[in-house]
């Protein structure tokens, strides 16, 4: 399948250079260690832990996902990609890849966060679900913005500026629900937030699919 081929191409490229993964992981670890030193031995509430986790995830995501389209423009591979596949497929390919990237980031950062800052575990399953859906929405909204940034002269500092207003509803919900779960909330306490995150993701990905053509083709 061609979507599979697109993902495979990016994965292979990533595997050869390992630039995106390495820089993203180092960025996340740097942020994590900074937070850890800043907090020191002070006990924090679940809400504060949730806020810190999401700040680390947000900025790591920005630095990691900005590359996804910029690299095509830098190496002039975008025209070939444009010939090879429909815009929707290109978008879905990048979406899947960013999703994999961010999931591996989450899988590394969150356990490390627990080890370094040892927050009270709270209820793990709801917290994991909220973070998973939050990352999904984060990727869904940021992928098309990364494409816009790549077309706007590859100014990667632009990405957080463009993303924050669009992502704010998602971030506010995710931070609150993560805080609730870390404070010991059950699945039913965060179910409304989960629904909201899912709805947000569906709407923003649908809109991105409709609009991506205008960004991708000159």
């Amino acid at each position: 399948m061609r979507l599979g081929a697109l993902i495979k191409k990016d994965l292979l490229e990533e595997f050869r250079t390992r630039y995106a993964v390495n820089s993203l992981l180092m960025f996340a670890v740097t942020a994590l260690v900074m937070v850890s030193f800043a907090v020191g031995m002070n006990p924090l509430t679940g809400q504060l832990h949730a806020a810190l986790i999401w700040i680390i995830l947000f900025f790591s995501a920005m630095s990691g996902m900005a590359r996804s389209f910029i690299k095509e423009e830098e190496k002039n591979t975008a025209p070939a990609l444009r010939l090879a596949a429909e815009p929707e497929l290109v978008f879905l390919g990048k979406l899947c890849l960013n999703f994999l990237l961010m999931l591996s980031l989450g899988a590394l950062v969150i356990p490390l966060y627990y080890i370094l800052l040892h927050p009270r575990p709270g209820s793990l399953a709801p917290a994991a679900l909220v973070i998973f859906l939050g990352i999904t929405g984060l990727v869904g909204a940021t992928t098309i913005l990364a494409a816009i940034v790549a077309k706007a002269g590859s100014k990667s500092t632009l990405l957080p500026v463009l993303s924050l207003p669009v992502l704010l509803p998602l971030l506010v919900t995710a931070i609150n629900a993560t805080g609730t779960a870390m404070g010991g909330g059950t699945l039913s306490d965060v179910s409304q937030a989960l629904q909201f995150l899912a709805a947000y993701t569906v709407v923003i990905v649908t809109a991105s699919l409709l609009l991506f053509d205008f960004v991708w083709n000159d």
Partner: peptide, 12 residues
């Protein structure tokens, strides 16, 4: 495109 995307997020 950006204007439309941002507008979509406002109701949320």
């Amino acid at each position: 495109v950006y204007s439309i995307l941002a507008f979509i997020s406002v109701p949320f």
